[in-house]
């Protein structure tokens, strides 16, 4: 066990954001959290990094757990000059080799001298990934890491993440709204809407009535067709699904 939530609830002000969340992440596991807007996905991740305190329940971390956190694409003010190299050395000065390794693992080798303002969306997300990799994380937490990337860009980014996972063997918890893209490598999908609606293997979740009704896919509508179309494009490994 790396991290475990035990009947965790979170209130922000008077609003209840998360209710009775229990989940455990094992070493090397990939867990994807999906859910509609406002379902508490980001809050759950922020609770895991300690940014919000639970109002009830417990959060248990393995002793000496190293976390890597990749935020939703962050806005860097254009008044703040910052090179890739300096960003990687914040807050601790890492060695050159470590930084080069992390940048290569994230797929952006040799960009050290560039201003981060000048990076493309995909490069910037990889930079955030590289930064999270610096601390040799046992658990990598990603909050909608492909927000703002186009279809091709996010598929590439997920590919990069799975390569990183294979290389360093960390566990991954990530938030995504693109179930059809992340399905291939995910061990477990958690469908969140204030509480855990359903969880399990991606194929199980994508056919469960809770999932379909939560995303408004239970009717005979356009998005259902789109989702199944997505299956075809990204599930080349023969996952069982009905088209």
């Amino acid at each position: 066990m790396l991290i475990s939530c035990n009947s965790l609830s979170v209130h922000l002000g008077k609003r209840s954001i998360l209710r009775d969340i229990s989940l455990t992440v094992e070493p090397g596991e990939i867990v994807t959290i999906i859910g509609p807007n406002g379902s508490g996905k980001t809050t759950l991740l922020r609770a895991m990094i300690g940014a919000v305190a639970p109002s009830a329940g417990q959060l248990i971390k393995a002793r000496g757990l190293t976390l890597g956190y990749v935020p939703q694409t962050l806005h860097v003010d254009e008044t703040l000059p910052m090179t890739v190299g300096r960003f990687m050395r914040l807050p601790k000065r890492g060695s050159r080799v470590e930084i080069d390794t992390a940048l290569s693992q994230a797929g952006i080798p040799g960009l050290e001298k560039q201003q981060i303002m000048s990076l493309s969306g995909g490069q910037f997300q990889r930079l955030l990934l590289a930064k999270a990799l610096l601390g040799h994380p046992q658990l990598l937490l990603l909050d909608e890491p492909t927000q703002g990337l186009d279809h091709r860009g996010s598929a590439d980014f997920y590919h990069q993440i799975s390569m990183v996972r294979d290389e360093i063997g960390c566990a991954i918890v990530m938030i995504s709204h693109e179930l059809h893209v992340v399905m291939r490598k995910t061990d477990r999908v958690i469908c969140l809407n204030g509480h855990i609606c359903c969880e399990g293997k991606p194929e199980t979740v994508s056919n469960s009535p809770e999932y379909l009704s939560l995303f408004g896919l239970d009717g005979d509508n356009e998005s259902a067709i789109y989702l199944h179309h997505g299956h075809h494009r990204y599930s080349h490994n023969g996952a069982t699904h009905r088209a």
Partner: peptide, 12 residues
């Protein structure tokens, strides 16, 4: 500097 860039990144 880190919390200017992103508060959650600073927390992590």
């Amino acid at each position: 500097l880190l919390s200017t860039l992103n508060p959650d990144l600073a927390l992590a």
